[in-house]
Structures are given as structure tokens and as C-alpha cells.
Simulated assay, not measured.
Amino acid sequence: MRTELVSEPGDPTRPNEDFASVGLPASGRGGALVVLDGVTPPQGPTGCLHSVPWFVSRLGGALTELTVSLPDVPLSEALSLALARTAESHAHTCDLSHPRTPQATVVLARWSAQAVEYLVLSDSVLLVEAPGGALTVLEDDRLSRLPRESLTTDAYIDAHLRNKEGGFFTAAADPSVAERAVTGVLPRSSVRTLAALTDGATRWVEKFREGDWTDLFTFVRKEGAGALVARVRELEVADVERAFLGRSKRHDDASVVYAEL
């Protein structure tokens, strides 16, 4: 089995708001990966005393433990338990009902000798390669399907779209959001390799159009996850006129977990 994990901040002077981990049980059978992308809030109150890195480190740590230690618990239930645990750790000091309480996107995958389970919530991506080389993109596309004009102001997004029916969902303080995630189970025999990426890394496809998902996957296999992030950084710097980035931040935290099962 081969695994590779890279997680780099968009700005080296600021904390990384991503989280990435791989858990391999002591039994030597199976494993799990966790990738979170913390949501950077706009300027203003969030109702919370804690930072996004604080939140993602606790949620990610809980998910890493639970996905490995409770192999018979579905991933959606593991996410719900992890959210409840994280919320309990700061409910006494923070207003967890605030729309900008710390939150994150989620990708989970867990494999055994029989099956590969997956969960995707919001705009990070899980790529699944079959033994024959065919690639499947597993994503939660609710945010990308929203009209661009509806995303122009933070106030409108918070009031009508963020964690709202008809909008999009992120992992914040409500454990029931786990039921909104895209989930499924694949036969272990149909999966050769997994790659989970935050949107700072998927810019290679989604912003800069260096290739399609198969091209990206091939790049990571041949050159490595670190090379993908390095190439994204080069493209970000080169886009002086913002022909590709538009109003997006110049550099974003970027994480990649690659696992050949």
C-alpha cells in the first residue's frame, strides 16, 4: 500500500485551515482518510472565541479516531458523532447558532477487504480509480449549481444559502448535517486508488484548466501530490491579470491525500 499526504497553507505567514490524515488500524486491515477544508469567514463576528484551525484540528482528529476505531459505524454517523463531540467542547463559551461559527468541507473514505465507503460534504473532491484505470469523480455539487448572482454578498449567503435547504451545507455545529452528505459504498474489488483534494488543489482543473480530472490524477501518480500543489502555486503567481482567478483569493490552502489500496 502506498499513501502520500500534502497540506500547505496558501500564505505561509497564516495558519493552514485545512486538515488531512490517513489512519491505518493496528490490525493491518483497511484504513481511512480524512480531508477537511476550513471555511475562512469574512471580516466580522463569528459568535465563536476559536479560530478555524482550532475547529478543523478537533473535528479532523475526532474523525480520524472514529473512522478507524468504529469500523462498523457508517461514515455519516461518524461525522455526526465527531461534530457533536467538537460542538460540546466549545458550546459553553460560543454561540454555535451563528451562521459563521467555524465550519469546514469534508471528504472521508474508509476501506476494508470487502468495501470502500465514502462521504463528501461541500466542495472538496474524492477521485476513485478502478483497476482498469477508469476514474470516477465523487463530489457534492450543490454550491457549484447555485446561480453566481446569488453568491454576491456574504449577508445573503448566510441568510438564505449557507446550511439552508436549497443552498449548500458544511460541517459546522449541527450533527444532523451529516445526513446531507453525499455517501456511498463501492466493492473493494472495483477500487484501486483514491485521491482526496481540497479546492485549493483542485484549482489545477477548476480554475486554471491544466487538464481534466483524469489528467490531474495521472499527474499526482507520476509527479506526486507535492508537485501538484507546487504547480498550482506557479499558476497562481503567473495569473497577474486574474484571468483565471477572478475575485478568488490569490493563494488558497491546498491539501491532497493519495492512497493506492
Results as ranks from 00 to 15, higher is better:
residue 2 R to T: 15
residue 6 V to C: 13
residue 8 E to C: 05
residue 8 E to N: 01
residue 11 D to P: 08
residue 12 P to Y: 03
residue 13 T to K: 13
residue 15 P to N: 07
residue 16 N to Y: 00
residue 17 E to H: 11
residue 17 E to W: 02
residue 26 A to L: 09
residue 34 V to H: 02
residue 35 V to A: 04
residue 37 D to N: 13
residue 37 D to A: 13
residue 43 Q to A: 14
residue 44 G to S: 11
residue 46 T to M: 12
residue 46 T to A: 08
residue 46 T to W: 07
residue 50 H to T: 01
residue 50 H to R: 13
residue 54 W to T: 10
residue 58 R to L: 14
residue 61 G to T: 06
residue 63 L to R: 08
residue 65 E to R: 15
residue 71 P to H: 07
residue 75 L to E: 08
residue 76 S to P: 00
residue 80 S to V: 00
residue 82 A to R: 03
residue 87 A to Q: 06
residue 90 H to Y: 07
residue 95 D to R: 14
residue 95 D to L: 09
residue 96 L to S: 04
residue 100 R to C: 12
residue 104 A to C: 12
residue 107 V to C: 13
residue 109 A to L: 04
residue 109 A to T: 04
residue 110 R to L: 02
residue 111 W to A: 02
residue 113 A to V: 10
residue 114 Q to G: 12
residue 114 Q to C: 06
residue 119 L to F: 10
residue 122 S to L: 06
residue 123 D to M: 03
residue 138 L to R: 14
residue 147 P to V: 02
residue 152 T to D: 08
residue 153 T to G: 06
residue 155 A to K: 09
residue 156 Y to M: 10
residue 160 H to Y: 13
residue 160 H to D: 03
residue 164 K to I: 01
residue 169 F to I: 00
residue 172 A to M: 03
residue 172 A to T: 00
residue 179 E to N: 09
residue 183 T to H: 01
residue 184 G to K: 11
residue 190 S to D: 15
residue 192 R to I: 00
residue 193 T to I: 05
residue 193 T to A: 15
residue 193 T to W: 07
residue 197 L to A: 07
residue 199 D to R: 09
residue 204 W to D: 09
residue 205 V to M: 03
residue 205 V to F: 07
residue 207 K to S: 14
residue 208 F to V: 03
residue 209 R to V: 01
residue 212 D to L: 12
residue 213 W to N: 03
residue 216 L to T: 08
residue 219 F to S: 02
residue 221 R to W: 01
residue 223 E to R: 15
residue 225 A to G: 13
residue 225 A to M: 11
residue 226 G to N: 09
residue 227 A to I: 08
residue 233 R to Y: 11
residue 237 V to R: 15
residue 240 V to H: 00
residue 240 V to N: 00
residue 245 L to M: 14
residue 246 G to N: 08
residue 246 G to R: 11
residue 249 K to W: 01
residue 256 V to F: 12
residue 257 V to G: 03
residue 257 V to K: 02
residue 258 Y to M: 15
